[in-house]
Amino acid sequence: MEGVSIRLRKSIFPLAAVTRTCHRYSGDFRVDISESEDDWLIDLLPAANASSTETVEARFRNDALDDLLRLQVQEQSRGVAEALLRAALQPIDGHR
């Protein structure tokens, strides 16, 4: 089965978002990330048991957009997430 090559604009997608999406596909594909001056270049080579690659590029691009949003959520909420977890896991009197 043939591989799929995808370009994503560096000005839009930070590496952290791209690697997240690549990780999602690393079960069904061998994933390779390289770069040009303006783009991330992603090569997906199907594993032996991978299903059709027909829609994979479209799915990958949608997933990359989702991962971009996830990164934004994480960055905006990191401080409060840490504070909430610290407070939630803090023992208080009468409760070990």
């Binding site: 989702d66 949003l69 996830r70 959520v73 909420s77 409060v80 997430a81 909430l84 977890l85």
Partner: peptide, 22 residues
């Protein structure tokens, strides 16, 4: 402000997004 959350999509609800909080 955003509180920490995760989101994903359900095949049964293609036009919607499921958000789960911490």
């Amino acid at each position: 402000s955003l509180l920490p959350f995760q989101f994903g999509r359900l095949a049964s609800h293609p036009d919607q997004v499921l958000i789960t909080a911490l």
